[in-house]
Amino acid sequence: GYSSTKIRSYLRRRGIKAAIPERIDQINGRIRRHESLCRLDRAAYRRRNVVERCFNKLKHNKALATRYDKRARHYEALVTIACLRIWLA
């Protein structure tokens, strides 16, 4: 998640509350148009950040990042091994 009008409208249509901080140009545009500012749920943003950091650690495994495996069960096994390596480290 990066903040954009397209992403925010997509989330809004599906009833999902965005945990994305707004860019400064979007904030300034809302102020100029006298619209209400989006509130950032900081607790949700922190939880989201933990998940993103986990994916970042998983992507350090080149075979996971490029998905060399053709079969889903092989890929799933590789994800499990990568998770175990992170957990045991």
Rank of each mutant, 00 (worst) to 15 (best):
A18W: 01
R14T: 06
L58F: 14
Y2G: 12
I81F: 10
V51P: 02
R12C: 09
S4R: 05
A18F: 00
I81K: 08
L37I: 15
L58C: 13
I31V: 11
E35D: 09
E76N: 13
R8D: 12
G15F: 04
R73N: 05
T66K: 14
L64Q: 01
A44K: 00
Y75D: 05
I24F: 00
I81D: 07
G15S: 11
A77P: 03
T80C: 08
C83V: 11
Y68R: 04
D69R: 03
C54I: 06
R23T: 08
R32Q: 06
K62C: 11
I7H: 02
R67C: 09
T5P: 05
I27W: 00
A65F: 11
E52M: 05
R13H: 09
S4F: 01
I81R: 12
Y45F: 06
A18Q: 04
N56A: 15
H34E: 06
L58V: 09
H74W: 00
A63G: 11
G15E: 12
K6G: 06
N49F: 08
N56K: 06
S4E: 05
A18G: 10
A65E: 13
D25I: 06
I31F: 02
I31D: 01
R73M: 07
R33W: 03
N28Y: 07
W87R: 12
E35W: 00
H60M: 12
R14A: 15
D41S: 08
R14L: 15
R23V: 04
K17Y: 08
N61H: 10
A44H: 08
R53S: 02
I81C: 13
N28S: 10
R8I: 00
A77C: 12
V51I: 15
N28L: 02
L64M: 07
T5C: 01
N61I: 03
R53E: 01
I86G: 14
D69P: 01
N61E: 08
H60S: 12
F55G: 03
A63Y: 09
R14E: 09
D69M: 00
D25C: 13
W87M: 12
G29Y: 03
R73Y: 10
K17T: 14
E22H: 01
R39Q: 09
S9V: 01
R71Y: 09
T5M: 06
E22A: 08
Y10N: 13
L37N: 09
P21H: 00
C83M: 12
A65Y: 11
C38K: 04
R14P: 01
I20C: 09
A63K: 10
R13L: 11
V51D: 02
D69Q: 01
Y10R: 10
E52K: 04
E52W: 03
R8A: 05
K70E: 03
L40K: 02
V79N: 05
R71A: 07
R39W: 02
E76Y: 11
D69T: 04
K62P: 14
S36H: 07
Y45K: 00
N49R: 05
N28T: 00
L78Y: 10
N28P: 01
R8W: 01
I27F: 00
R67M: 14
R12Q: 14
R42M: 13
C83T: 10
I31E: 07
L88N: 15
R85D: 13
I7A: 12
E22L: 11
R46F: 10
R33T: 00
E76I: 10
K6Y: 03
